[in-house]
Design a protein around this nucleic acid. Structure first.
Lengths: 249, 249
DNA sequence: GCCTAAGGTTTGTTGAACGATCCTGCAATG
DNA sequence: CATTGCAGGATCGTTCAACAAACCTTAGGC
């Protein structure tokens, strides 16, 4: 009998394409992407009729999709008024960074105490490094959106050192939330440029198994990034609100 | 003019009862409570028709409620098959404790580094202590459900030292998920009794501002609790599955 | 400018209908 | 006996239409 692992291995890799999902879940995916990519800005109203018409789905299906999104903090569901893209507040930013310090800091610290740290080349560490490489390359070609994307990959790979699906999921949500702030920021370059070297330093320390130092640099970075973002909020405080947009206009 | 703070204070306290919520959200609350209290066991199917009939709501409203619940990991939504109360796996337990070590550990550590720790009687600390008191009293009267509830309050108050609504929320969800395991456990006393003294020790260390030692005791507790729970899973591995219950039977 | 009322719009819920999918039971076959 | 195939029934997912409730906008009066 010929080795079956060849063609059954192909079946295994084909499994992903069999995944079905409900229309409500698909609609939620579409809306989430539009929000995360800034094609619908914070404050915008997601009007049921126009979206249901545009996507050619029933209003009930759309409502299910809204309910699916409501836990992700990208939209806010206001009773009898509808669903809106979240406007991130300063308190949100403070809370998000508080949680990032807890999760990313703990992930890095516990990883450092584990057996893997003595072998600096574990799989998770290579993801940390490749995110740095990606960010440096994007910066060199002036692609600041790409720098931001690489930075998100970097921080997700730090958290992923914890090897926890729950932590991965929460981390994704936190970074998605932060994107809401960036969509209304004057320029992304000003935010990311100062920190490219930090990621490089952290990666090097991680590879060397010097996790306590890596934690210190990481926490320092998170503190500075939080401060910078809050300063952006403060400098916008006097400007008129340009965020009351609607999906129907 | 008489002091208005008396009757306006009553208005303020009555505000909570004015909070409106949609029927879908109310239905989700009812179902969540039933799952968390073990009135519907893990593996049970939440059949649309019978629940909609029982609650006298439309099937569409119930479906919205299911979608509201789907992020909380208490139920699992299977396409074309329905919604089921989650059966917690060993991998779930490992992941939950991994995240608890990250969150509770970080909350306690960062709190220790903050200005509050030198004043061991900050508001959050009193909640830690009162949860301990509550647990000891419950144990003395043999109320082991009460001990479990107090233990949950204890760990939530530890995480709440982080002063983060997101951390509080995640912590609540993690502890709710763990309840799923306890609903199918032979006896809760065996689980909690060994740990009452740990909570006492942690609280005393927190009050004394000795946060590093408190972190060490906490992490040790979490490791032991995880091991014990996993041993319970292993000892159940050969038993027939009594979990394929249905809400309609 | 402020307040009130009326009208229009939108949301939340309901119920019925239909198609797709799954589950169960039974029969046929090797 | 084990496996496969088929039919029927049950359930889920989606759609549609309808209606009531709540909100928003506009117009008029003071």
């Amino acid at each position: 009998m010929a080795d079956p692992s060849g063609w059954t291995a192909e079946l295994i890799s084909a499994r992903r394409s069999l995944a079905r999902s409900s229309t409500a879940a698909k609609v939620a995916d579409i809306l989430r992407d539009m929000v995360m990519e800034g094609r619908v800005l914070p404050g915008a109203k997601l009007a049921e009729d126009s979206i249901a018409d545009a996507l050619q789905v029933s209003r009930n299906t759309l409502r299910e999709a809204f309910r699916l999104l409501s836990h992700e903090r990208l939209v806010v569901h206001e009773l009898n008024r509808g669903v809106f893209v979240r406007v991130l507040t300063e308190a949100d930013v403070v809370d998000i960074y508080r949680m990032r310090r807890a999760l990313e800091g703990a992930a890095l610290q516990f990883w450092g105490e584990s057996a893997d740290a003595g072998r600096g080349r574990a799989p998770g560490v290579s993801h940390v490094r490749s995110a740095v490489t990606m960010g440096v390359a994007a910066a060199e070609r002036g692609d600041w959106d790409g720098v931001g994307t690489a930075n998100m990959h970097f921080h997700r790979s730090i958290a992923a050192l914890a090897d926890s699906t729950r932590i991965d999921e929460i981390m994704s949500q936190l970074l998605a939330e932060l994107r809401l702030a960036f969509h209304v920021m004057p320029t992304v370059r000003d935010f990311y440029e100062p920190y490219i070297g930090d990621n490089e330093r952290i990666a090097t320390l991680v590879e060397a198994g010097r996790s306590q130092e890596a934690v210190a640099v990481l926490l320092d970075y998170l503190n500075r990034a939080e401060d910078q973002l809050l300063r952006q909020f403060a400098s916008k405080a006097g400007q008129p609100s340009a965020q009351a947009d609607s999906a129907s206009t």
